[in-house]
């Protein structure tokens, strides 16, 4: 065993980058859920974002174009969900699941000409002075621009939800759509906008996977990331800042598990007769999420402040 091979700073840097796709997808889904809509199609929107971003970036030779295209692709797929659930009043759970099935297939179709090529390079920033700081420079100032934008987006969403009138209306729509409607707010339009925003965020998260983290396009490359994003929203108790924490926790467990393996720690446990399989470690964030959910829900008055009251329910003017 050689735990000294694990450098805490490197570990931190690793988990922060691993968390970025999750962070985008989760903050988008948070806004969607705050508006009272449960879109389980995050995985589908992410992979569409991954393929659209990759296709555009390699065609145009620019990562920036890629991210925009990824966002557009994710939003377009999300709007399909939006139209289905808001105008055709289909069940949100079923539609979201169908969206994932559809998105995975469509992405594979679009992506066929793009397997086996490399995207344009995308490097971390080199900020004068800051990037060269000892320790802090490595920990905070050498990431790529999209990662900082992700953290910035969380701040913006917080401001939007808590400090703007539109944000308040969006939350009101999620809390009680009938009341919001009788006050004259356009429930369906607000929800469509939130759904499109969520799709765009998931799309950027997907593009980050295909352009930065893995960087390549392969069929099925999201491999369940979208589902984890759903868990993070719950873990975060619908609070924007906790998304950051949640994304780091979920991203971090993977990185930690790999580090513990590479350093021989799991082997060492096993030699002591403790069969610690990596799978048990991978379970922990989900169990922690359930625990968090129980804690925040147990107090019913406080729970009402977090979870949107109308989550997953269809809205009809006449009904």
């Amino acid at each position: 065993m050689d735990l000294s091979a694990i450098d805490p700073i490197t570990l931190f840097v690793g988990l922060v980058s691993a968390a970025t796709p999750l962070l985008f997808a989760a903050i988008g889904e948070l806004v969607v859920e705050k508006s009272g809509v449960l879109n389980l199609g995050v995985e589908g929107m992410m992979i569409i974002g991954a393929v659209c971003g990759f296709a555009a970036a390699t065609t145009a030779g620019s990562s920036a174009v890629g991210f925009v295209a990824g966002a557009a692709g994710g939003a377009a797929l999300a709007l399909l969900f939006g139209v289905m659930t808001q105008y055709f009043l289909t069940n949100q759970v079923a539609t979201g699941l169908a969206l994932t099935l559809f998105g995975l297939g469509l992405a594979a179709l679009i992506g066929q000409p793009f397997t086996g090529i490399k995207p344009p390079p995308f490097h971390g920033l080199d900020i004068p002075v800051l990037s060269d700081l000892p320790v802090l420079g490595r920990m905070f100032f050498r990431y790529d621009i999209v990662l900082y934008l992700g953290v910035g987006l969380i701040a913006l969403v917080w401001v939007f939800l808590n400090r703007t009138r539109t944000g308040l209306i969006l939350r009101a729509v999620g809390e009680n759509h009938d009341a919001a409607h009788s006050l004259g707010y356009p429930v369906v339009k607000i929800r469509l906008a939130a759904i499109a925003f969520g799709g765009a965020c998931a799309g950027v998260g997907g593009s980050y996977l295909s352009l930065v983290r893995v960087p390549q396009w392969t069929e099925g490359m999201t491999a369940g990331t979208g589902w984890i994003a759903l868990a993070i929203v719950v873990f975060a108790a619908w609070k924007p800042w906790r998304i950051l924490l949640g994304a780091w926790l979920f991203g971090g467990v993977t990185i930690l598990q790999l580090n513990l393996q590479a350093s021989g720690f799991l082997s060492w446990l096993q030699s002591l007769g403790i069969p610690m399989q990596a799978q048990y470690l991978s379970m922990t964030p989900y169990l922690v999420t359930i625990l968090v959910l129980v804690v925040i829900s147990a107090d019913r008055t406080r729970a009402a402040l977090n979870a949107p009251g109308c989550l997953g329910r269809s809205f009809t003017q006449s009904g």
């Binding site: 399909l80 539609t95 099935l101 559809f102 297939g105 469509l106 179709l109 069929e219």
Partner: peptide, 13 residues
Amino acid sequence: KAAISVFQGMLLF
């Protein structure tokens, strides 16, 4: 296979 998944998705929608 991808086209089949898209087709199934359409059917569901």
